[in-house]
């Protein structure tokens, strides 16, 4: 930012505006992901919410995780959900309206969870670690993945492989309510 601009727009103000924008994106996206009856709006809400969370990750100091968040959640999971919507229930089918007490009960349960967790958050004396390293680089992350967390890393890869194969088998072979035309 040039000094001339800096006289009129303070960097802290820009940071605050960006923070409010990001938090707003997160909450608005989460509400859109939950409230509308039309399922395709929910997916768009989820994508908006993920964008907001990625922005919050940047505020928390990790650009790498923000990129991964966008890649994995918006690039893979949201697209997979859109595919599942496309292959399952047609959009024009009207769903009967919800049973009202269920709505109130679920609101009450989440309100109780909110209150109890906020009491925990406020009551706990959070202690900062005595010695804190400031190494936020991706290099350190890669080193940890291949040394201390090597086993977990390999296990996650195995779990993903098994999940993919299992998903293909479940969706292709075990679905079998109706055989496609042309097969005996």
């Amino acid at each position: 930012m040039t000094p001339v601009m800096g006289q009129y727009i303070r960097p802290e103000a820009v940071a605050w505006a960006a923070f409010i924008l990001v938090v707003g994106l997160t909450f608005a996206g989460a509400l859109i992901a939950v409230l509308p009856r039309n399922i395709i709006y929910n997916v768009f809400g989820l994508a908006t919410c993920i964008l907001g969370v990625a922005g919050l990750f940047i505020f928390l100091g990790s650009e790498f995780l923000a990129m991964m968040e966008i890649l994995i959640y918006i690039g893979a999971i949201s697209i997979a959900i859109v595919f599942a919507i496309m292959l399952s229930q047609p959009m024009h089918v009207r769903i009967p309206p919800a049973w009202r007490p269920k709505l109130y009960l679920s609101f009450a349960v989440s309100a109780v969870v909110f209150v109890s967790f906020s009491v925990i958050v406020l009551r706990t004396p959070w202690a900062v670690a005595l010695e804190r390293s400031q190494d936020w680089t991706v290099k350190r992350l890669g080193e940890l993945f291949l040394t201390r967390y090597e086993l977990l890393f390999e296990l996650i890869s195995l779990a993903l492989l098994v999940a993919i194969i299992g998903a293909i088998i479940t969706a292709a072979a075990l679905g079998g309510g109706r055989k496609p035309e042309g097969e005996p």
Binding site: F27, I39, S106, V109, S110, V113
Partner: peptide, 19 residues
């Protein structure tokens, strides 16, 4: 926490499995 509670509310409220 707010995000978690919105998710919990949706999980209890929705009847569509994708939701």
């Amino acid at each position: 926490l707010v995000l978690f509670c919105i998710g919990l509310f949706g999980l209890l409220k929705r009847r569509s499995l994708i939701g």
